[in-house]
Every structure is written in structure tokens, then in C-alpha cells.
Write a protein that binds this DNA or RNA. Structure first.
Lengths: 215, 215
DNA sequence: AAATGTGAAGTTGTTCACAGCT
DNA sequence: AGCTGTGAACAACTTCACATTT
């Protein structure tokens, strides 16, 4: 688990972790659908997601009633409701800042598109150099940030610059109206309350494993 | 946050999240040290880490008493105790399976070394193809896994293969004695209880942001 | 009979209030 | 006086038990 972001506690009553599990359920539902399965019980779906059936049901009731007693849930319908809820029903535009090794890998990652996100553009201090990495998205200098964010109505950004530059980049992003940041830099970003930050820190994940595997 | 791994609840009473925060504190302590600061109060350190001072103090008391009342904590000493606790005092060997875009990026990531991890070797179904990516670590076929894991006494592994292959790779890793897995594939891995899995799912992180930024 | 939905109980994690050192 | 350490209160989340619907 990545240590979860900062800020914004609106839509209270609903546990933060429940939202994560929604994503998890969605992935399992996709797989069920691929296998031609149309109906699923909370027991079966929970097992696929690695949670307890009661937790799955409780998670869903935060948002309404979607099952039929004695029968289970309709795969398609439940998937669609989660998609609507997460706000990924329409393709969400995202920008990425920092086209180093990791940034370039993220730009090539097919998983985003599949889940309803499109990295519309990347930015780097040295765009010429970064362009050598041959990714399909256009790479701009930071001077183009405002223009492109506005043009595509972008609200989310990925930060994959070195630690020292991350806060400055975050400031720039906030300035042009970004409200959701996925941060790969190993620093605690300071942002206004209305901006949401999720951190992914690879070294921290390994350290965490390291602790738990000690005999 | 990434939805945190499975299995293993030993060393009870200590909250899982407290271990993550230890990593966070360590990072902040490193920065303080770089700035030549020798002593820090729970207030200051907590602020740097983005947590409440009482939480920091409580987290530390799970492991002992490290501060001096009226004075604060000694930066060096506290950092060392966290390093010892996390088990990264000596360089930890790690293997990586799946040298695609993401895998290659992880192999080139400098952050691991700095935090006490060394990716000693990488594995891929098609090692010849993968070697074109020009990373500094040797790339082997899966047939060499057991040999190298034993030779370096490796206990931790990173999975960066496509979703369909992840479970099979996990089985192989468990078989050769790996007990900690950092999994980037978007699937819920089934492993024995004594094996710890931490999941990093990039699409899930974006979906989570997407939910929270909806006005 | 089978499976969902949910208030209530239980568990885990966080914060408070203040006692205790230096 | 300043700041840590910690039991007790509080809040958040999970699980249970069972009423309810098909």
C-alpha cells in the first residue's frame, strides 16, 4: 500500500479504503465479463478480490443497492455503476511531468488507456533530450503547460521528476488548475486543501516488505 | 495508497501503517542530516513528514524510547534505529521478473540503491529480447531463477510481468523461497500465508484520484 | 433456499490530556 | 520551561448476526 495522499475529506461517512476496493472489484468484474459470466454472488466476487463477502456488500451499500437477494449481482450493471462512480465513464485526460526512465515507462504503459485514462501530453525541462525516448505522446517544455491543460480540460497529473524538483512542479500544476496529483517523487508535497495527492514510493514499499519478512 | 498486501500479521499490536510512516520519517531524517541538523523535535519532524506530532511519538514508542524529554531526538541515532528496524542496515538483494517497459525503468531507478536495496538480477521469458533494453543488471531466463536466488540469498522480488503471467511467476518465486513480493501486475496474487505481497497498481491510483476530484 | 442489506458489536488505529524527565 | 512518553478517550473501519427479499 503506498501511503495514501493528503487533503480533502468530503463525501464523508465513506471509508477511504472502500474507494480503493471499488477499483479492485471493477478489475475482477472485467475479468468475469471476459469469461462470459453475467451474474456473480458477493461470495464469489469477494473471493476473487481477496476480501470478505460482508465487506464487499458493505462497500456497495455506501452507494446504493445493486444486487438481487437470492440471486447476486449483474456483472455488467455493477461494473458500470462503479465506473460512473469513479468518474472514468468518459476518457479522463492526464498530463505527465518528468520524462526520465520512469516517466517514459509510464507513458508507454498500456494499462492506463484500458482503464479510462489518456496521457494527452508529457512535459520535461529538456524536451529535446526527452524526445529521444520515443514515446507516442508529444513532449513539451513547461512553458506549454497552462495552454495544454486548458485545451484538454485536464484535471489530473503524474509527477515523475527527481525529488528536488517535485515541489516546484507541484506548484506549477496547482497554478494551472490541476486538482489531482499522482506523485512518484519521494517527498511530501505541500499543496492546498482542495488538491488531492496520492503518493507512490517504490523504496518505501520495499522497506515495508523488508520489515515484514524478517524472521 | 495502494491497497496493501496480503498475509502475515505477526508482531501484532503494531499498526501496519506505522511501518510505512517509519519509512517516511527516515526520509525526512536523511534530509535533515544533509542540512547538518543534529537534533529534532517530534513537532518539527512530524511537520516534515506531514503527520501529527502525537502520531509520530506513538509510532516510535511501539519500538522503544528514543528521545530526550525537553530536548527532542538525535537525528543520526533515530535514523539508524529505523534502518535497523526495517532490516535495511545491510544491502538487501532483490530480483526482478519481467523486463518490459516498466521493468526496465525499475532496473534503471537509482532510488533503490540509495535506500539499501540492490536488484542483483533480472529475469524474462525472452532474455535475448530483453537485453536490448540495455540495463546494467544481467538478464536471465526463468530457468536460472533458483540458482541465482540461492547464490545471493535473495528473499524479495519485484513482479513486473503482464497480468496473465503474474500468478505463475509468483508460484515460481514462492517455490525458490522468496518471502516478499512487490507486485505491479493488476491481479490479486494467491500465495501462502508466510509470503508477504505488496501491490502497486497504477490504474487504481488514478481511479482513486478521479473519484476524489469530482466536484 | 439462497443471497443481499444493514444496525449493532467488535476491532483497529488515532488523538487527547497530562504525567514524567531533563 | 520544554518536550517526550503513554494510558485513556475517541474515531474509523470491519465483521457479525440476522432481518429481508426473490
Amino acid at each position: 500500500m503506498v501511503l495514501k495522499g493528503s487533503s480533502k475529506t468530503q463525501r464523508a461517512e465513506i471509508p477511504r479504503k472502500a474507494i480503493y476496493r471499488l477499483s479492485l472489484y471493477l478489475r475482477c468484474l472485467h475479468r468475469l465479463k471476459d469469461n462470459g459470466i453475467q451474474t456473480v454472488s458477493s461470495d464469489a466476487l469477494a473471493q476473487a478480490a481477496g476480501v470478505k463477502p460482508t465487506q464487499l456488500r458493505k462497500d456497495l451499500t455506501y452507494f446504493g443497492q445493486f444486487g438481487r437477494r437470492g440471486l447476486g449481482y449483474e456483472v455488467d450493471q455493477l461494473a458500470q455503476m462503479i465506473i460512473d462512480l469513479l468518474g472514468t465513464a468518459s476518457l479522463q485526460p492526464v498530463v505527465l511531468v518528468g520524462v526520465g526512465n520512469l516517466g517514459a515507462a509510464l507513458l508507454s504503459y498500456k494499462g492506463f488507456d484500458k482503464e479510462g485514462f489518456e496521457i494527452v501530453s508529457a512535459f520535461d525541462q529538456l524536451p529535446e533530450l526527452a524526445r529521444k525516448k520515443k514515446v507516442r505522446q508529444p513532449i513539451h517544455g513547461m512553458d506549454k503547460l497552462a495552454e495544454i491543460v486548458e485545451k484538454h480540460a485536464v484535471k489530473m497529473a503524474i509527477i515523475s521528476v527527481p525529488a528536488e524538483e517535485a515541489q516546484e512542479v507541484a506548484n506549477d500544476l496547482v497554478e494551472v488548475g490541476i486538482t489531482g496529483i499522482l506523485n512518484f517523487a519521494p517527498v511530501v508535497l505541500q499543496v492546498p486543501d482542495e488538491v488531492m495527492v496520492n503518493n507512490v514510493n517504490l523504496a518505501m514499499e520495499l522497506e515495508n516488505l523488508s520489515y515484514f519478512i524478517q524472521s
